[in-house]
Design a protein around this nucleic acid. Structure first.
Lengths: 197, 197
DNA sequence: GTCTATATACAGATAGAC
DNA sequence: GTCTATCTGTATATAGAC
């Protein structure tokens, strides 16, 4: 059975691991760092999880489950521009709420996506292909500007995730003020202008 | 004196190190990987450079010297939209020609920019502030749409660097075809529409 | 469940032969 | 200049006391 203490400690460890893996990547992260961040000893940490890899794998599974949702939520029956703007807003909200998850993902891709190949080539690709086809239909019907649907999706990823992934840089340039301040109106305007037929 | 063999080996090492640091980050990279990639033994590698950190530092210095140039090349006397489109094109060209340098930079920022704090807070910030002021003037004169100049600069970074930094993901989604195929016309159109007064 | 102590592997770096 | 051998520190993981 699982006690309340066990649940709390597992959560603490995963939270600390997310912090460290997101900043250092899998190889760069150490159990010492994670244990210190979680406020536990290293052997105690390995009492809750079998290995460093087991912790990372669990974090990745949690991440991937949530990663597809915003794109999946685009409704074929909805208004084209409203649907795409809604997608952009959800992605921006994720950068605001889950910046560490975004950096964890970015780190994996930067490393050549060794642990994500299957997910991307299968699940993500299938969903992107489907949504790209939908966007192409909308464009053909004249309800949307005729833009390359793949680059449109990439541009939403790039522009929204940038605020989480390059947070350190933006903070140093805009000393003090919230990195996301003004981002939403800027992106609203950018995509409104891009998508107008 | 420096022989031809020394020059060639130093270049090989730096090239291999760029590859490995860009993919694994500083902590994640190992001298074994770099030595293998360079086709040299590990002690031989340390005959040419004092330490792992010395190699990384040299790579960073080379990178930073070239990192400011495109933004600096924006001409206050030029045509506003042409200058900004030119900046975007130069940045996209850098993602095409120097994707590893882009990933090296991304890795540093993801790690919280510990080795880049001074560069960003001083050199980069000063240049960005200057160019942001220029863009704000252009907007005030009605020669450019009234967009937030900082977010405009961030959007150019995000959209162009994404093709280098997330190359692995894009390749898996667009199996086979060049990740940058179609990127330039897409971005031209996006920024033309965004910047029209 | 949590600790100290430790086994084992691998990392960065050096010594010294050639 | 380049190698083999090795020193030293640190990493993951385990053993076993409490």
């Amino acid at each position: 059975m699982t006690t309340r203490i066990q649940k709390r400690n597992r959560k603490r460890i995963l939270d600390a691991a997310l912090e460290v893996f997101a900043a250092q990547g899998f190889r760069g992260a150490t159990l010492d760092q994670i244990a210190a961040e979680a406020g536990l000893s290293k052997p105690n940490l390995l009492y809750y999880f079998d290995s460093k890899e087991a912790i990372h794998r669990l974090l990745m599974e949690d991440l991937l489950a949530s990663w597809l949702e915003p794109l999946r939520a685009i409704e074929p029956a909805g208004d084209p521009r409203a649907e795409i703007m809604g997608y952009m807003r959800r992605k921006l909200q994720m950068s605001r709420e889950f910046p560490r998850e975004s950096r964890l993902f970015a780190n994996e891709i930067l490393q050549g996506a060794p642990r994500l190949e299957d997910f991307i080539a299968r699940d993500l690709k299938a969903l992107v292909d489907d949504r790209a086809a939908l966007i192409a239909r909308w464009s053909a019907e004249g309800r949307l500007a005729a833009v390359d649907p793949y680059h449109l999706i990439f541009s939403i990823w790039a522009l929204t995730q940038h605020y989480a992934d390059f947070d350190a840089q933006i903070r140093l340039i805009r000393e003090g003020s919230d990195p996301l301040e003004g981002a939403e109106p800027f992106l609203e305007r950018l995509f409104e202008r891009l998508l107008a037929p």
